[in-house]
Design a protein around this nucleic acid. Structure first.
Lengths: 301, 301
DNA sequence: TTCAATGTTTGTCCTGGACAAACAGGACGT
DNA sequence: ACGTCCTGTTTGTCCAGGACAAACATTGAA
């Protein structure tokens, strides 16, 4: 399909490995050794790109690149792990039919999935639906995508349909005007929105006034938006896929941009390993978010 | 506000200017001249970042960086232009209250905007709502954003709220299972989804079975998804902001990937200047899309 | 006016060096 | 055995300055 091969920018897009990293690996480990075009620029053959994608996936699971780059096919074996802790303890806990939901997506049965989810929503109520269905299902789909049993388009379909369900449920709520004004968004390079929608659903359910700005807001814009909307709280969501090392710096920078009176809350699967920081509320669970909302109300009579 | 300043990665995130560009501008034009930290690394003061954002905006309007970087405040004057053709002829045509809707967003009145839009939806019906309200409003907001009278976060709020309205309207439709199966998505580097949602609303209204995959699907994935969903038609949307010169190549590549039996439709403000191509249906207007759907049905009894 | 040839601007890629933060592993004391 | 400090290694990001081709502007001819 493409005999020419991928240039370095295309590989960066496809693998998520920066140009700097691709070049420094070549220098150090001698692994991706791309061809060169007439102009001396790197031209990666498709199989090397494939290998890089695999390596990146394993790195995201915690492996280190130095080890991965040596070993031709043993990596394929290393695919399965990384479900040591939760998966084993979660699998028995499942029972609740999440696997069936996942299977519906896998069979590309959009209508069936929507129907099943709507039933669950009606049965569980919005709060439990978010906590017991959407959140674990999202994690499960993320894992399936990581270990290759979900295609990109299947993950997209899941996301798109679930977004609709949540937005629909949120729209059905009375527009809360009692609690704090919460501005919800994510930083650049964080395109995942499901976490934000789940948070919005729970906060709106408690009567907070949510201002959804979508994803990928530049930090300075978040500051302006907070001022323009007179927000009491800025809520950010980080997915598990977000480069964790960048999080503390981002939060600290945003903390400096925002007035002290505006609280900064961070949540999502991406922040679990982030340390506590001054002036930033780290929300490890949805219950923590609900508790934080109650706290805020207690302190702002 | 932030005495430390922004490092080069943060500036890249916030302005969209790559590190390479930031460095080469400094070398060539002598403009962003950041401080240096103890380690000799660039540290951009906030005002320089602000100026860079302004320059980037003007560049997106078609200005060239070399000119922009000379001239201290004349740029502020250069903000207004870029409304030579349409705005003048469109302004008198307005009348229908689109300006009021835009004003609601500008005032950050989310609830008011939603209410006004819902009223219009009820009054006009979905089809006319999409064609006469959402589409022109989207174009108008895009223009306002280009000439600087809309902030980034205001444009995000508009998009987010409008997305909700459309999705809600779509969900309320009976799940069409009569017409063709239409797979709706966009290519990588095309994150705008409003066009797709408008198309989905109109097609679903006609009873077509839409499969919404969200945005930014790699081409090979589109092919796999089309097969998996047994799609009859693949519909792509290109916004006005998409680099137009890439469009023909992308479409041709995708045409090769898809089986001949699967039709390829392209729409959106971005394709108006794209030439007609063999095996690809170019939809300049929403009416054209509806007509194309009728055609397909006539040919597939 | 339209089109082709020429010059200028501008983004991206290159090499090879450097450094600090993150990590792994061992020594030490409890 | 367990936790804490220290030390060496791994790894990502940044830097400088050179090069080139694609995009753009401009000029001149048909």
């Amino acid at each position: 399909m493409n005999p020419p091969g991928f240039n370095i920018a295309a590989v960066e897009r496809d693998t998520g490995l920066s140009k700097d990293v691709l070049r420094v690996w070549e220098r150090r480990y001698g692994f991706p050794v791309p061809d060169r075009d007439v102009n001396g620029e790197r031209l990666y053959p498709a199989d090397q790109v494939e290998r890089l994608r695999l390596i990146k996936r394993l790195m995201d699971q915690g492996h280190r690149p130095g080890k991965l780059i040596a070993a031709p096919a043993e990596e394929l074996t290393a695919l399965a792990p990384r479900r040591s802790r939760r998966a084993e303890s979660a699998a028995p806990t499942d029972a609740s039919g999440l696997t069936d939901l996942q299977a519906l997506i896998k069979q590309h049965d959009a209508a069936g999935y929507l129907q099943a989810m709507q039933q669950r929503l009606a049965r569980q109520g919005l709060q439990r639906f978010v906590q017991d269905t959407v959140a674990p299902l999202t994690r499960q789909v993320g894992e399936a995508w990581e270990d290759g049993s979900f295609e990109v388009f299947e993950e997209h379909l899941f996301t798109e349909l679930t977004k609709r369900l949540l937005r629909q449920a949120i729209a059905a709520l009375p527009s809360g005007s009692r609690g704090p004004r919460v501005l919800l968004t994510s930083v650049p390079d964080e395109p995942h929105i499901l976490g934000l929608l789940m948070a919005e659903a729970l906060l709106a359910l408690e009567g907070a006034e949510c201002i959804p700005l979508g994803t990928q807001m530049p930090l300075l814009e978040i500051g302006r938006a907070a001022a323009a909307h007179r927000a009491d709280i800025v809520g950010l969501s980080f997915s598990i896929a977000f480069p964790q090392r960048q999080i503390p710096g981002l939060l600290q920078q945003l903390r400096l941009i925002l007035p002290t009176a505006v609280e900064l809350w961070a949540g999502g699967a991406g922040i679990l390993r982030t340390p506590q920081m001054e002036g930033i509320l780290k929300l490890d669970t949805f219950d923590a978010a609900i508790a934080a909302l109650a706290d805020w109300r207690a302190n702002h009579p």
